[in-house]
Amino acid sequence: MESVQTKKMMKTLLALIPVESPLYSFHPVSRLLLFVITGFIPLFINMPELNFMFAVVVLLLFIYSKVALSSLKMYLPVILCAGIFTFLTFIFFPGKDPDYKVIGHVFGLALYDQPIMNAFIAYSKILALLLSSIFYFSTNRERDILAALRTLKMPFVASYVLGLSLRSAGMFLEDLHTVREAEQARGLDYAAMKFTDKVKLYSMYIIPLISLALRRSDEISNALFVKGYSLKSSGKRADYILTKYRFSASDVATCVVLILLLVLIVYFKYRYQWFGSDHSLFQYVIK
């Protein structure tokens, strides 16, 4: 089972992505736009049911994109804890308003309608935003992200720094793995360590790792020089890798639809006060 999954998914520096996906036929710019717009839409919607629907749509996108849903397991603690924390802050710090109505009690604490509604609104937004963010990194390689940014005319040095940063995160984790393996080979037993010792040990890991980064900065700057790149480089440079991507008619359609969707949501929200919590089904349920 595991080997089948390994074949279907591959590791990038940031997450697990599907080896093959219909989403890959879209240009990286379309995919980036999807990420940006889905990162904004829930912020304009105060109807939890719509945001939960939005989250379901994102989950369907995961399935459409052939992302193994089991790879989302690592985000479950974040999703659950975020919910618990959000509800607790609204339950323990409801604020004061004469219009609040008590809808029940928990451990002797009064639960008010509006704060609970606000908790649902906040959590539904967080959930929708969180899933859209995870979706992007579960369906894009680092080079797709860079290709999107370069297509959008981001200066080469900036996109290079971003690429190197992502790579550096991967190298940092690999180095950490090597240090830990070396420690285990010399008989260090993590299980037997006290919590404070573990915290100290983890903090101390960063010393050799930053020293390595320091050495690498020299190596990479030499490598760039050797390949003819310098900060003062002038003149136009070809961007060969962009020739590998095509912006098709379906990309144009996708981008237009996404932008239109955001514009319409913003327009209807501020022109006709749509998507407000007053008309939410949750209001009726809570009351």
Binding site: V161, L164, S165
Partner: peptide, 20 residues
């Protein structure tokens, strides 16, 4: 003066920050 080295170190440091 600002050098390539500073830019590279910044990128590597962003990577360290991403992990932490």
């Amino acid at each position: 003066t600002p050098q390539m080295n500073h830019v590279i170190m910044m990128a590597l440091f962003i990577g360290v920050g991403v992990v932490v």
